[in-house]
Every structure is written in structure tokens, then in C-alpha cells.
Design a protein around this nucleic acid. Structure first.
Lengths: 138, 138
DNA sequence: GTAATTCCTATTAAATCTATAGGGTTAATG
DNA sequence: CATTAACCCTATAGATTTAATAGGAATTAC
């Protein structure tokens, strides 16, 4: 199940991408427009900023903006920030590999075999989908 | 993240598939062989039996066996039983569709768009992988 | 200097996952 | 037919994670 954090984060990114103006977009605006609890959204946007996806401007008339063009922001990066590793088990994670305690023989492990395929297939989707794909057109 | 329930369930199915004998496989055997808490495993196998994946024989010398050939058991069915819907959000689930409360326009929702692709890609993997693929050979 | 906004930490509330407990039911065996 | 070994079933406790809230600190426009 997709976490609310990720769901809200994706919606917020889309919302920002669609505001084509030059001024940063405020949390309150996004929260209202997308029906997201404002304080929760604050922490999510903060995470995205710290990860380098968003930039921010503080103080009055402050807000958030994209650090790159929507077409340059791919979902693999975004999902890793919001949802964590793309792999469903650490033993098939490319970026966060960890051996299973219980698993004796990784090469023969059925979970390992299946999850490698899932990882590859998801990675393929995420890498090839950009924020622009999600934000514009039908 | 893959739940332990699913992980254990997959390992157990593989274990049973690899026992080529005619006698049912006992929970205790699987638990020992795969390092799974026995009582937890019991409940998982019960779930798989109720879903029609496994059959069981009660009483002394009882145990579990596959209801179909490993090559006929596909992972889409197994994952639905163990992990729940394959879709990461209800609004893209084929078998368990539900509209989002918050989402005003499904067609324009970025989460919806992305998750449809993820669902299709995962479904493709799960439907085309059988228990035989996971159990035998390298 | 006041108002508006992001920034940061802590905490609580809710939900889910993992595991255990305890016994009921069924069947093989001598 | 008693004993034993296995699955069957429900409930519940413990642990972890997720979701949301609270309260203010720091920063900037005006």
C-alpha cells in the first residue's frame, strides 16, 4: 500500500509543477487545493527540499519551487525520497542492500528471485516517468 | 516493504513444491527448514488453504500439499492471498476498486496515473511467474 | 516591528504487523 | 478405544510504523 506521505508528496509536486508562475508556491495553497493536512504536508515538503527535489524561499511571500524542470524529475528519485527503497526486500535493493538474517542461500531463495523481477519492473516504470508526464495533458 | 507473512508464505510454498513425495508436508518441518515461527506459519498456511492454493490432511501424519502443479500456480494469485491487492492504491485496483475520498478528478490525478503503470508492470511479473519458476533450477 | 511564512523537534493517536497462547478437532496406530 | 500427533480456530498481546498535531523558532517582505 502506498503511504499517505508519498501520495501527498506526489500530489504536491504535481500541484507545484502546474503553477507555471515565477513565485514560489505556499504550503497553505497546496494543502487547500489538494485536501492535505497542512502540518503534515509541511514535513513532507521539508523532506523533499532536503533531498534536493524542491527549493524554498523563507519568510513572507515564501514558498516552494522545483529545483529542476518537471521533465527532468524522475519518479525513481522521488519515490526513494518519499517511500524509501524501491525494492520490497533489502536483499534485492541496489541502493540499500542488506543480507537477510534467515536466508541461507540467496541464489535459491524464492523470495529473492521474485523480488528481483519486481524491482526491475518497477524501476523501469519509475525511471521512465517524469513529473511532467504526471502533471500535464491527458 | 514485503510483509513477513508474504515472505514466509512464499518460502513455505517453495518448500512444499520441492518435496516431491506423495505425503503431505508438515508445518513443523517447514518451520524448521525455513526458520519460521511455527505458530505464525500455521496461520499463514491456513490462509493459503482457505484460498484454495493448498490442501490439507488432518490428524496424525497430516500436513499440507499443493492443490495444483507448481507450474500452474501463478504469483498474482498467491500475492493477492498473502499481501492483498496488487495495486498500491484502491483507485487503480482491478479486483478491489474503490474511489478515493479526496481525489476530485481521477483522470488528472498524478498518483492515479503513476500507480496504473506500476500495477500493470507488477501484474505482468506476477502473472508470468509460477511457483515452478521460483522452486526449481537456477 | 509586525505579519506571514518556512523550519524544526517532540509527541500523540491510530493502524498494522508479528508473534504467541491455548485449546478444539480430526485421524492414524497398536 | 486410548493415545498421540497433526491441523484448525480465535483471541490477544507486543512491537513497529504511519499519520497527524502541537508549539514555537527563524527568516523575510513590507
Amino acid at each position: 500500500m502506498l503511504s499517505k506521505k508519498t501520495k501527498y508528496g506526489l500530489k504536491a509536486l504535481t500541484f507545484i509543477a502546474r503553477q507555471e508562475g515565477d513565485v514560489p508556491v505556499q504550503v497553505g495553497e497546496i494543502a487547500k487545493g489538494e485536501q492535505i493536512p497542512q502540518k503534515f504536508l509541511e514535513s513532507i515538503l521539508l523532506t523533499l527540499r532536503k533531498a534536493g527535489v524542491l527549493g524554498s524561499k523563507k519568510g513572507k511571500h515564501g514558498g516552494y519551487y522545483l529545483r529542476n524542470e518537471p521533465s527532468e524529475i524522475n519518479m525513481a528519485d522521488v519515490m526513494r525520497v518519499l517511500e524509501g527503497p524501491i525494492a520490497m526486500v533489502p536483499c534485492v535493493s541496489l541502493n540499500f542492500y542488506e543480507k537477510c538474517d534467515d536466508c541461507v542461500n540467496e541464489a535459491q531463495c524464492s523470495v529473492h528471485k521474485l523480488m528481483i523481477q519486481v524491482r526491475d519492473s518497477n524501476l523501469n516504470v519509475f525511471k521512465n516517468t517524469t513529473l511532467a508526464d504526471l502533471s500535464f495533458s491527458g
